[in-house]
């Protein structure tokens, strides 16, 4: 048996389900509190209780460990989201077992052979995972999601025994964000600038072009470190992962940690004074020149094309 934890994202959960099927054993699912509609699994195990009214990672892990002890699965799988990784790491700590985060492939066996992501995807690691069950999360968007399968699995509900400490960690409040602009993670167009922008003021022309394209403004870490833009604008391994139709990167050299954030872009246009900048090796299009001249010229040309 393989048990899949139903984490926060339905799409990523279906990727985790597809990954779990590849391990060859019957697939069960586990959810805490409420469970989404889900076909195609043998049994859906639901932990019930007041503890699960809001997200409570330690309580979820305690419930999960109870289920694992009862069924001795060969593997436990979740999507490699913040919460998927958190719950499986909690489970691993409780069972004193290895946990392999953000896998892109696995070959069942003992030890199990996995390929996992390092450096935000710039390096892959092949590793042997010892012990049982194997605890794995699946790197988002590395495997094809399985199609939605109609039908209801059999449902087994249980009320886990929880201790005081299991209940100490839970979401007590949700502060709603004030809606503003196009979100960087979901924008169809992202216009970013790096150290080449020269200053916070240098972003005026970047904002203008992003505005004309109804896109979002991004930046590199050199920019956030200089205090020119907030960290919420940073694209990269330790910033936001983006997946636009086109990414326009101006005055950005293309460090691997920056590129780890824009692998999902369908097209990349680099604007750089240096024809040998590393970013050109991952770019579809390039303009060699000073962004302070090139970017306003593109905005002007766009306005002209629109007859204004």
């Amino acid at each position: 048996m393989v048990i899949v934890y139903l984490a926060d994202s339905a799409e990523l959960t279906r990727q985790a389900l597809a990954f779990a099927r590849g391990l060859g054993d019957p697939v069960h699912a586990f959810a805490a509190g409420s469970a989404p509609e889900l076909g195609g699994v043998e049994t859906l195990h639901i932990a019930e209780g007041d503890a699960f009214a809001a997200y409570a990672p330690t309580a979820i892990a305690a419930a999960f460990v109870e289920l694992i002890d009862r069924h001795s699965p060969t593997a436990v799988v979740a999507a490699g989201t913040e919460r998927g990784n958190e719950v499986l790491a909690q489970v691993a700590a409780r069972l004193d077992l290895p946990f392999s985060a953000n896998c892109v492939a696995a070959t069942a066996g003992n030890p199990m052979l996995v390929t996992r992501v390092r450096w935000g995807g710039s390096v892959l690691e092949e590793a042997r995972v010892h012990g049982a069950p194997k605890l794995l999360t699946v790197q988002p968007h590395a495997v094809e999601a399985e199609p939605e399968i109609a039908g209801q699995p059999s449902v087994e509900r249980f009320t886990p025994a929880l201790s005081e400490t299991d209940l100490a960690v839970r979401v007590v409040e949700r502060v709603e964000a004030t809606a503003g602009g196009v979100s960087l993670a979901e924008a169809k167009v992202v216009v970013s600038a790096g150290r080449g922008a020269g200053s916070a003021e240098g972003f005026g022309i970047i904002e203008e072009l992003a505005g004309l394209l109804e896109g979002a403004v991004g930046c590199s870490r050199a920019v956030t470190m200089a205090g020119w833009r907030p960290h919420t604008d940073q694209v990269g391994q330790t910033g936001t992962k983006i997946a636009p139709e086109i990414y326009i990167a101006c005055g950005i050299s293309g460090a691997t940690q920056h590129m780890a954030g824009c692998k999902g872009a369908k097209a990349l246009l680099a604007i750089n004074t240096d024809a040998d900048a590393p970013i050109l090796a991952s770019a579809d299009y390039a303009v060699i020149g000073d962004l302070h001249e090139v970017v306003p010229a593109i905005s002007a040309e766009l306005r002209k094309a629109r007859g204004g």
Partner: peptide
């Protein structure tokens, strides 16, 4: 969690189309 080896994924091997200078 025993590392066997590291691999650098193949780059997209792209040759950027240079749209022009300046």
């Amino acid at each position: 969690l025993e590392k066997v080896r590291l691999v650098v994924p193949e780059g997209q091997g792209k040759e950027a189309v240079v749209l022009g200078q300046g």
